[in-house]
Computed example of a mutant assay.
Amino acid sequence: MKKEILFVLLNEFADWEGAYIAPNLNCGVEPGSPSKYIVKTVAVTKDPVVSIGGFKVLPDYAITDIPADYAGLVLIGGMSWFTPEAERIVPVVKEAIENKKLVAGICNASVFLGMHGFLNQVKHTSNGLEYLKMYAGPNYAGESHYIDGQAVRDGNIVTANGFSALEFSREILYALEADATEKIERSYRMNKTGVWEE
């Protein structure tokens, strides 16, 4: 049975930041490859959430009815990670980290992880160190672990800046052992260059 990866969506989520991850997990890294995972969506409630680009998503789960056996959380960025609504996601993330599940955050979702102290002991990146420090506030004390890179994976924690959706996807695929290294790299290069390698 496939394991569920939950995409956490808030209103005004950034459509493009999950665009590479979802099909690679749902359908396999390459055409015909087996898939170990299935993507589901979760929001604070089961009410529709609307992306920055206007896509309306009806979540599979509210935060109150998430199944216990999911394999990871992918927090998709956007401007709502600094709102009271986002605060309701904190216990879900805390529990996932405690249970050693994947927790991945891109763009302002990475700042959200910093705001709540989740990045203080792990290597991570975001939209720039100064940006992270300014918006994450006093609970962020992970400056010595900050890496100025596109995407960073440290154990089950993956972070990325908002311009690195492809690199974010690649690190998530590695963290989940979604397929062989050569397939993950070939898929990454194909999406980056537009050329399929035989």
Rank of each mutant, 00 (worst) to 15 (best):
M1S: 15
K2N: 13
F7H: 12
L10D: 03
E12M: 12
E12D: 15
E12V: 11
F13N: 08
A14E: 14
D15C: 04
E17K: 06
A19N: 12
N26D: 14
C27A: 09
G28K: 00
P31F: 10
G32L: 00
S33Q: 10
P34G: 12
S35H: 14
K36H: 13
Y37E: 07
I38L: 10
K40Q: 08
T41I: 10
T41M: 12
T41F: 13
V42I: 07
K46W: 04
D47S: 14
I52D: 05
G54C: 01
Y61T: 01
A62I: 01
D65T: 02
D65L: 02
D69C: 02
V74N: 01
V74M: 05
G78C: 09
F82I: 07
T83Q: 04
I89M: 06
P91E: 10
V93N: 03
E98D: 11
A104I: 08
G105K: 07
C107T: 05
G114F: 10
H116F: 03
G117N: 07
L119H: 03
L119M: 06
Q121K: 13
V122W: 05
T125A: 05
T125F: 04
N127S: 04
G128E: 11
Y131W: 11
Y135T: 07
A136D: 07
Y140T: 00
A141D: 09
S144C: 02
Y146V: 00
D148C: 03
G149D: 11
Q150M: 09
V152C: 08
D154L: 00
I157A: 03
V158R: 01
T159P: 05
A165M: 11
L166E: 12
E167K: 13
E167G: 12
F168V: 10
I172D: 10
I172P: 08
L176A: 06
E177Q: 15
A178I: 00
D179H: 10
E182H: 15
S187Y: 00
Y188T: 04
Y188F: 15
M190Y: 15
N191E: 14
N191C: 12
K192W: 13
T193H: 10
W196Q: 08
